[in-house]
Design a protein around this nucleic acid. Structure first.
Lengths: 141, 141
DNA sequence: TATTGTTATACTCTATAACTATA
DNA sequence: TATAGTTATAGAGTATAACAATA
């Protein structure tokens, strides 16, 4: 036992991992009600907020490798939620279908309720600092 | 495009996932220098801070299912870093070996440097709020 | 009866290498 | 030459079910 070292609960990195795992586990559970995974819902929300994204665009924005976009898009296309539309000889735009927009509205309801519940858990005095801190860690702004 | 919805970067849950993924990817990269995974280093640090933990104890503290403790402990035992010692007919204490304590000190150096760098990225006015917010999300205190 | 350690298994996410076709 | 989409594959984390032995 080395008392000079801080317990794991005092390490921001460890707690970041634990908080993310707990929170994402809870979100994944809620999303099973509409047969979506977290990455599915994220992709639908992203498509709703940007026009004319290609598969490679999505991969870059969501930190998903090109190779891993394929099964993800196959699954969403098989479910009838998105469609691939060639924009030139090698790129394809990914677009929400009518069913996709319907599923998106269900996903938005679940995700936003989840986000509200998540913030609710954070004591008010720390609440406004969470997003800026997380953005800084991710290298955004 | 639904402008009523906030972009993904404004959702704490999404940014929590992204920050954790980015940070843990960076930590995992650093730990490859001493041939450890994140879960390995976490287990070594935990063993250093508590006496006489059984495999089931560790699983509960680190949120690792009993079944998944087996390959983890096998790997660390094969590497000579921990030893299993039966404490009764069904439980076994997990103990750091001499090599394990040496590896632990290397892991502590890497982990604490990483934690310092992580906090450094967070603007000072948000820094002290990060840990309490993450603890609250994880359901600690 | 509940718990421990274990085996087997499966699913998700992620990562790399290699290939074809196109800009 | 660089990029896009694809295939195949492997690693890592995680989940459940079932079993024997023990508390």
């Amino acid at each position: 036992m080395n008392s000079a070292d801080r317990p794991l609960e005092d390490l921001p990195g460890f707690m970041l991992r634990r908080a993310a795992n707990d929170a994402m586990g809870a979100l994944a559970d809620r999303l099973t009600a509409i047969d979506l995974r977290i990455s599915d819902s994220t992709l639908l929300i992203l498509l709703d907020q940007h026009d004319a994204l290609t598969a490679a665009d999505i991969g870059r924005k969501l930190d998903i490798k090109r190779a891993n976009m394929v099964p993800l898009l196959n699954r969403l296309e098989d479910a009838g939620l998105v469609a691939r539309r060639p924009v030139d000889g090698r790129s394809q735009a990914i677009e929400l279908t009518k069913d996709g927009r319907k599923k998106l509205s269900e996903a938005n309801a679940i995700v936003h309720a989840f986000e509200a519940d998540l913030l609710e858990r954070v004591p008010p005095e720390h609440r406004e600092h969470l997003l800026p801190a997380l953005r800084a860690i991710s290298g955004i702004d």
